[in-house]
Amino acid sequence: MVMSDAFWIILTGSLVAATSGLLGCFLVLRKMALVGDAISHAVLPGIAIAFLISGSRSSVPMLLGAAAFGLFCTVLIEVFSKRARVQEDAAIGISFTWLFAIGVILITFFADKVDLDQECVLYGEIAFVGFETWLGIPVAVWTLGVLLIFILAMIGLGYKGLFITTFDPEYATTLGISVAGWHYLLMSSVSVTTVFTFESVGAILVVAFLIIPAATAYLLTHKLKTMLLLATLIGITSSILGYYLALWLNASISGSMVVVLGVLFIVALAVSRGKRMQISAFS
């Protein structure tokens, strides 16, 4: 069975969007959207080093190592803000720009050994997803599929822990639940997801997939479970529509997917506004 490129690209986009969207819900609710942004930039040096050592793009252990840089970034932010008493927004800004800068330096310096061009860093290569396959299915689909299953399992099993530490961390502490443990579990998941989705959508657009579907879903529902479901669906929709938008404009596929996400967000913003005005008109 040979599937068309279009199918694989949309599927890859959907997997990226679904995985990021699920994690993004928790980031948005924890008011850590920008930490997600920071992590997605900060994994760049890790990826560069992973490529340098393994010489390939799909060495899973290497990429997991790269994800450690994302965690390192959250630790760096904490060191800057808690120990050195830099205000938090600046701590985030300094940490990720610095790590990103180091990443760019590494890529330029080892340009002959690291097969990563700057374009890929910025907007990914989802168009070429079909180039590398295993058992007739693109490698990216395999890895992202496994990742999605992992994330789903984590959210399914850890739903209560994530829920309580997000809603009321202080209360969770009084029950003896480790708030820091859940925090780092979530941050590790975001780092790993960023690294694995990086190749498809690029470092900067990952953050769009993390935040926009979650924020859109947040506007549309008052239930956490519905929010998770909606974020996934919104991500998949944008992946389908974005592909055809890109085809029509002959432009970047991942960029187009995010443009669709942005438009969906604006629609949701208008709808939720309208609903609220209706309610206030009645009451």
Partner: peptide
């Protein structure tokens, strides 16, 4: 005031948190 009441949860969801225990979290 220590929590964000815009959080997507129902009244029952919040009360059930009282039944969460460290060992029974999963």
């Amino acid at each position: 005031g220590t929590v964000d009441w815009d959080f997507p949860a129902s009244v029952l969801d919040v009360v059930l948190m009282g039944r969460f225990k460290k060992r029974r979290l999963f």
